[in-house]
Design a protein around this nucleic acid. Sequence first.
DNA 1: TATTGTTATACTCTATAACTATA
DNA 2: TATAGTTATAGAGTATAACAATA
Lengths: 140, 140
Amino acid sequence: MELMSNGRTLPLVSYLARSGWRALDTSAQPGDITHRQLLALTLLKERGDLAQQDITRVFGLDASNVVGLLNELEERGLVLRRRDEADRRRHIVALTGEGALMLERTFTRLASIEDELLHALTSQERETLHHLLLRVATSD
Amino acid sequence: MELMSNGRTLPLVSYLARSGWRALDTSAQPGDITHRQLLALTLLKERGDLAQQDITRVFGLDASNVVGLLNELEERGLVLRRRDEADRRRHIVALTGEGALMLERTFTRLASIEDELLHALTSQERETLHHLLLRVATSD
DNA sequence: TATTGTTATACTCTATAACTATA
DNA sequence: TATAGTTATAGAGTATAACAATA
Protein backbone atom coordinates (compact mmCIF):
# COMPACT_ATOMS: atom_id res chain seq x y z
CA MET A 1 0.00 0.00 0.00
CA GLU A 2 1.48 3.32 -1.10
CA LEU A 3 0.81 6.13 1.37
CA MET A 4 0.66 9.76 0.31
CA SER A 5 1.00 11.06 3.88
CA ASN A 6 3.87 10.83 6.32
CA GLY A 7 2.14 11.40 9.67
CA ARG A 8 3.75 14.78 10.24
CA THR A 9 0.70 16.94 9.63
CA LEU A 10 -1.65 15.72 12.35
CA PRO A 11 0.66 16.71 15.25
CA LEU A 12 0.74 20.24 13.82
CA VAL A 13 -3.04 20.26 13.63
CA SER A 14 -3.24 19.05 17.20
CA TYR A 15 -0.85 21.72 18.40
CA LEU A 16 -2.82 24.50 16.73
CA ALA A 17 -6.13 23.18 18.05
CA ARG A 18 -4.81 23.07 21.63
CA SER A 19 -3.41 26.58 21.38
CA GLY A 20 -6.70 27.82 20.01
CA TRP A 21 -9.13 26.46 22.53
CA ARG A 22 -6.84 27.14 25.46
CA ALA A 23 -6.74 30.76 24.38
CA LEU A 24 -10.52 30.76 24.02
CA ASP A 25 -11.19 29.25 27.44
CA THR A 26 -8.58 31.23 29.36
CA SER A 27 -9.78 34.52 27.86
CA ALA A 28 -13.41 33.68 28.69
CA GLN A 29 -15.43 36.17 30.70
CA PRO A 30 -18.27 35.02 33.01
CA GLY A 31 -21.18 34.02 30.78
CA ASP A 32 -19.01 33.04 27.82
CA ILE A 33 -19.27 29.51 26.45
CA THR A 34 -16.48 26.92 26.37
CA HIS A 35 -14.84 25.60 23.21
CA ARG A 36 -16.78 22.37 23.68
CA GLN A 37 -20.09 24.22 23.72
CA LEU A 38 -18.96 26.28 20.74
CA LEU A 39 -18.40 23.14 18.68
CA ALA A 40 -21.90 21.90 19.44
CA LEU A 41 -23.55 25.23 18.55
CA THR A 42 -21.47 25.45 15.36
CA LEU A 43 -22.64 22.03 14.27
CA LEU A 44 -26.30 22.97 14.76
CA LYS A 45 -25.83 26.25 12.92
CA GLU A 46 -24.27 24.48 9.93
CA ARG A 47 -26.50 21.45 9.65
CA GLY A 48 -29.78 22.64 11.11
CA ASP A 49 -31.84 20.62 13.59
CA LEU A 50 -30.31 17.28 14.53
CA ALA A 51 -31.15 14.25 16.62
CA GLN A 52 -28.79 13.69 19.54
CA GLN A 53 -27.74 10.53 17.77
CA ASP A 54 -26.38 12.62 14.88
CA ILE A 55 -24.39 14.85 17.19
CA THR A 56 -22.98 11.79 18.89
CA ARG A 57 -21.85 10.35 15.56
CA VAL A 58 -20.31 13.53 14.17
CA PHE A 59 -18.38 14.28 17.36
CA GLY A 60 -17.33 10.69 17.88
CA LEU A 61 -18.37 11.15 21.50
CA ASP A 62 -20.26 8.67 23.59
CA ALA A 63 -24.01 9.41 23.72
CA SER A 64 -23.88 9.88 27.48
CA ASN A 65 -21.51 12.82 27.13
CA VAL A 66 -23.71 14.49 24.57
CA VAL A 67 -26.53 14.43 27.11
CA GLY A 68 -24.49 16.47 29.56
CA LEU A 69 -23.24 18.88 26.93
CA LEU A 70 -26.78 19.57 25.70
CA ASN A 71 -28.04 19.93 29.27
CA GLU A 72 -25.57 22.79 29.81
CA LEU A 73 -26.71 24.50 26.61
CA GLU A 74 -30.42 23.95 27.21
CA GLU A 75 -30.25 25.31 30.77
CA ARG A 76 -28.86 28.52 29.31
CA GLY A 77 -31.51 28.67 26.60
CA LEU A 78 -29.00 28.29 23.76
CA VAL A 79 -30.58 25.12 22.35
CA LEU A 80 -34.01 23.50 22.58
CA ARG A 81 -34.91 19.81 22.72
CA ARG A 82 -38.23 18.53 21.46
CA ARG A 83 -39.57 15.02 20.87
CA ASP A 84 -39.62 13.81 17.30
CA GLU A 85 -43.34 13.06 16.76
CA ALA A 86 -42.48 10.60 13.99
CA ASP A 87 -40.27 8.56 16.35
CA ARG A 88 -40.86 9.46 19.95
CA ARG A 89 -37.59 7.94 21.09
CA ARG A 90 -35.72 10.76 19.35
CA HIS A 91 -34.95 14.23 20.64
CA ILE A 92 -34.59 16.87 17.96
CA VAL A 93 -32.09 19.53 19.01
CA ALA A 94 -32.47 23.05 17.64
CA LEU A 95 -30.39 26.20 17.99
CA THR A 96 -32.38 29.05 19.58
CA GLY A 97 -32.16 32.71 18.59
CA GLU A 98 -30.19 33.33 21.74
CA GLY A 99 -27.89 30.45 20.80
CA ALA A 100 -27.27 31.95 17.37
CA LEU A 101 -26.43 35.28 18.99
CA MET A 102 -24.01 33.67 21.41
CA LEU A 103 -22.43 31.86 18.47
CA GLU A 104 -21.79 35.12 16.60
CA ARG A 105 -20.40 36.73 19.72
CA THR A 106 -18.06 33.79 20.27
CA PHE A 107 -16.87 33.87 16.66
CA THR A 108 -15.87 37.48 17.24
CA ARG A 109 -13.85 36.46 20.28
CA LEU A 110 -12.35 33.63 18.26
CA ALA A 111 -11.46 35.93 15.37
CA SER A 112 -8.98 37.90 17.44
CA ILE A 113 -7.48 34.68 18.75
CA GLU A 114 -7.08 33.41 15.17
CA ASP A 115 -5.46 36.69 14.22
CA GLU A 116 -2.79 36.12 16.82
CA LEU A 117 -2.25 32.42 16.16
CA LEU A 118 -2.15 32.81 12.38
CA HIS A 119 -0.17 36.05 12.31
CA ALA A 120 2.54 34.38 10.22
CA LEU A 121 0.10 33.85 7.34
CA THR A 122 -1.17 36.40 4.85
CA SER A 123 -4.86 36.97 4.38
CA GLN A 124 -4.83 34.83 1.24
CA GLU A 125 -2.95 32.01 2.94
CA ARG A 126 -5.55 31.97 5.71
CA GLU A 127 -8.21 31.64 3.04
CA THR A 128 -6.34 28.70 1.54
CA LEU A 129 -5.98 27.06 4.95
CA HIS A 130 -9.65 27.56 5.68
CA HIS A 131 -10.79 26.05 2.39
CA LEU A 132 -8.52 23.03 2.63
CA LEU A 133 -9.78 22.30 6.14
CA LEU A 134 -13.37 22.84 5.06
CA ARG A 135 -13.02 20.29 2.28
CA VAL A 136 -11.51 17.81 4.73
CA ALA A 137 -14.34 18.37 7.22
CA THR A 138 -17.10 17.99 4.65
CA SER A 139 -15.68 14.92 2.93
CA ASP A 140 -17.19 12.34 5.34
CA MET B 1 -8.98 47.14 15.17
CA GLU B 2 -9.39 45.49 11.77
CA LEU B 3 -9.37 41.70 11.96
CA MET B 4 -8.28 39.52 9.06
CA SER B 5 -9.84 36.38 10.54
CA ASN B 6 -13.47 35.50 11.18
CA GLY B 7 -13.16 32.73 13.79
CA ARG B 8 -14.34 29.99 11.46
CA THR B 9 -11.03 28.23 10.94
CA LEU B 10 -10.20 27.16 14.49
CA PRO B 11 -13.32 24.97 14.89
CA LEU B 12 -12.28 23.11 11.74
CA VAL B 13 -8.79 22.64 13.11
CA SER B 14 -10.24 21.37 16.36
CA TYR B 15 -12.50 18.91 14.56
CA LEU B 16 -9.63 17.49 12.52
CA ALA B 17 -7.38 17.21 15.57
CA ARG B 18 -10.05 15.30 17.51
CA SER B 19 -10.66 12.94 14.63
CA GLY B 20 -6.94 12.33 14.28
CA TRP B 21 -5.99 11.46 17.79
CA ARG B 22 -9.12 9.50 18.44
CA ALA B 23 -8.24 7.35 15.43
CA LEU B 24 -4.69 7.02 16.71
CA ASP B 25 -5.68 6.00 20.23
CA THR B 26 -8.52 3.66 19.28
CA SER B 27 -6.34 1.86 16.72
CA ALA B 28 -3.54 1.46 19.27
CA GLN B 29 -2.14 -2.00 19.93
CA PRO B 30 -0.70 -2.95 23.34
CA GLY B 31 2.68 -1.23 23.63
CA ASP B 32 1.78 1.67 21.35
CA ILE B 33 2.04 5.20 22.69
CA THR B 34 -0.83 7.67 23.09
CA HIS B 35 -1.20 10.88 21.11
CA ARG B 36 -0.16 12.80 24.19
CA GLN B 37 3.09 10.87 24.44
CA LEU B 38 3.61 11.26 20.70
CA LEU B 39 3.46 15.03 20.99
CA ALA B 40 6.12 15.00 23.71
CA LEU B 41 8.47 12.74 21.75
CA THR B 42 7.94 14.81 18.60
CA LEU B 43 8.92 17.97 20.44
CA LEU B 44 12.14 16.39 21.70
CA LYS B 45 12.99 15.06 18.25
CA GLU B 46 12.53 18.49 16.68
CA ARG B 47 14.18 20.68 19.27
CA GLY B 48 16.71 18.35 20.88
CA ASP B 49 17.23 18.12 24.65
CA LEU B 50 14.97 20.36 26.68
CA ALA B 51 14.40 21.32 30.29
CA GLN B 52 11.00 20.32 31.65
CA GLN B 53 10.27 24.00 31.93
CA ASP B 54 10.59 24.35 28.14
CA ILE B 55 8.18 21.49 27.51
CA THR B 56 5.74 23.05 29.95
CA ARG B 57 5.89 26.36 28.12
CA VAL B 58 5.56 24.97 24.58
CA PHE B 59 2.63 22.71 25.48
CA GLY B 60 0.94 25.34 27.59
CA LEU B 61 0.44 22.63 30.18
CA ASP B 62 0.90 23.00 33.90
CA ALA B 63 4.32 21.82 35.08
CA SER B 64 2.75 19.18 37.32
CA ASN B 65 1.22 17.43 34.31
CA VAL B 66 4.52 17.35 32.45
CA VAL B 67 6.00 15.45 35.39
CA GLY B 68 3.47 12.65 34.94
CA LEU B 69 3.79 12.58 31.18
CA LEU B 70 7.58 12.26 31.38
CA ASN B 71 7.33 9.62 34.09
CA GLU B 72 5.33 7.44 31.70
CA LEU B 73 7.90 7.89 28.95
CA GLU B 74 10.91 7.42 31.21
CA GLU B 75 9.52 4.20 32.71
CA ARG B 76 9.34 2.81 29.19
CA GLY B 77 12.86 3.97 28.35
CA LEU B 78 11.72 6.36 25.63
CA VAL B 79 13.22 9.45 27.28
CA LEU B 80 15.95 10.07 29.84
CA ARG B 81 16.13 12.71 32.58
CA ARG B 82 19.46 14.00 33.88
CA ARG B 83 20.35 16.89 36.16
CA ASP B 84 21.70 20.00 34.50
CA GLU B 85 25.14 20.38 36.11
CA ALA B 86 25.13 24.11 35.36
CA ASP B 87 21.85 24.60 37.25
CA ARG B 88 21.04 21.64 39.43
CA ARG B 89 17.38 22.62 39.76
CA ARG B 90 16.85 21.70 36.12
CA HIS B 91 16.17 18.31 34.60
CA ILE B 92 17.36 17.96 31.03
CA VAL B 93 15.09 15.61 29.07
CA ALA B 94 16.54 13.66 26.14
CA LEU B 95 15.00 11.31 23.58
CA THR B 96 16.57 7.82 23.73
CA GLY B 97 17.33 5.63 20.71
CA GLU B 98 14.35 3.52 21.65
CA GLY B 99 12.23 6.66 21.85
CA ALA B 100 13.30 7.71 18.36
CA LEU B 101 12.41 4.25 17.05
CA MET B 102 9.00 4.38 18.68
CA LEU B 103 8.49 7.80 17.17
CA GLU B 104 9.17 6.54 13.64
CA ARG B 105 6.87 3.58 14.19
CA THR B 106 4.10 5.87 15.42
CA PHE B 107 4.51 8.20 12.44
CA THR B 108 3.92 5.20 10.19
CA ARG B 109 0.70 4.42 12.05
CA LEU B 110 -0.26 8.06 11.82
CA ALA B 111 0.45 8.19 8.08
CA SER B 112 -2.34 5.77 7.27
CA ILE B 113 -4.71 7.68 9.53
CA GLU B 114 -3.80 10.92 7.72
CA ASP B 115 -4.37 9.21 4.41
CA GLU B 116 -7.94 8.43 5.44
CA LEU B 117 -8.71 11.78 7.05
CA LEU B 118 -7.21 13.81 4.21
CA HIS B 119 -8.48 11.65 1.36
CA ALA B 120 -10.36 14.62 -0.11
CA LEU B 121 -7.07 16.44 -0.76
CA THR B 122 -4.55 15.81 -3.51
CA SER B 123 -0.94 15.13 -2.68
CA GLN B 124 -0.02 18.69 -3.51
CA GLU B 125 -2.81 20.11 -1.39
CA ARG B 126 -1.59 18.07 1.57
CA GLU B 127 1.84 19.57 1.03
CA THR B 128 0.32 23.03 1.07
CA LEU B 129 -1.63 22.27 4.25
CA HIS B 130 1.47 20.90 5.93
CA HIS B 131 3.61 23.92 5.06
CA LEU B 132 1.00 26.43 6.17
CA LEU B 133 0.62 24.66 9.51
CA LEU B 134 4.38 24.38 9.89
CA ARG B 135 4.80 28.11 9.42
CA VAL B 136 2.10 28.75 12.01
CA ALA B 137 3.72 26.38 14.49
CA THR B 138 7.21 27.84 14.11
CA SER B 139 6.17 31.48 14.26
CA ASP B 140 6.14 31.78 18.07
C1' DT C 1 13.76 35.64 47.57
C1' DA C 2 12.86 33.41 43.14
C1' DT C 3 12.80 29.28 40.25
C1' DT C 4 12.61 24.08 38.94
C1' DG C 5 10.57 20.22 39.72
C1' DT C 6 7.39 17.36 42.67
C1' DT C 7 3.26 15.75 45.33
C1' DA C 8 -1.58 16.06 46.71
C1' DT C 9 -6.02 17.28 45.36
C1' DA C 10 -10.06 18.67 42.79
C1' DC C 11 -12.44 19.60 38.52
C1' DT C 12 -13.41 18.61 33.60
C1' DC C 13 -13.72 15.36 29.76
C1' DT C 14 -14.66 10.86 28.16
C1' DA C 15 -16.02 5.77 28.00
C1' DT C 16 -18.63 1.72 29.83
C1' DA C 17 -22.57 -0.47 31.75
C1' DA C 18 -27.23 -0.72 33.22
C1' DC C 19 -31.67 1.40 32.74
C1' DT C 20 -36.33 3.50 30.60
C1' DA C 21 -39.25 4.46 26.89
C1' DT C 22 -40.38 3.60 22.30
C1' DA C 23 -40.07 1.11 17.88
C1' DT D 1 -35.54 -7.51 20.00
C1' DA D 2 -33.35 -3.23 18.76
C1' DT D 3 -32.69 1.76 19.21
C1' DA D 4 -32.64 6.79 21.44
C1' DG D 5 -31.76 8.80 25.29
C1' DT D 6 -30.53 8.84 30.37
C1' DT D 7 -28.09 7.89 34.82
C1' DA D 8 -24.27 6.21 37.60
C1' DT D 9 -19.60 5.45 37.79
C1' DA D 10 -14.72 5.09 36.77
C1' DG D 11 -10.63 6.59 34.26
C1' DA D 12 -7.92 10.05 31.75
C1' DG D 13 -6.45 15.02 31.33
C1' DT D 14 -5.73 19.31 33.45
C1' DA D 15 -5.19 23.23 36.96
C1' DT D 16 -4.19 24.97 41.68
C1' DA D 17 -1.73 24.98 45.92
C1' DA D 18 1.86 23.71 48.97
C1' DC D 19 6.46 21.82 49.26
C1' DA D 20 11.78 20.60 48.65
C1' DA D 21 16.01 21.64 46.53
C1' DT D 22 18.78 24.91 44.38
C1' DA D 23 19.90 29.49 42.62
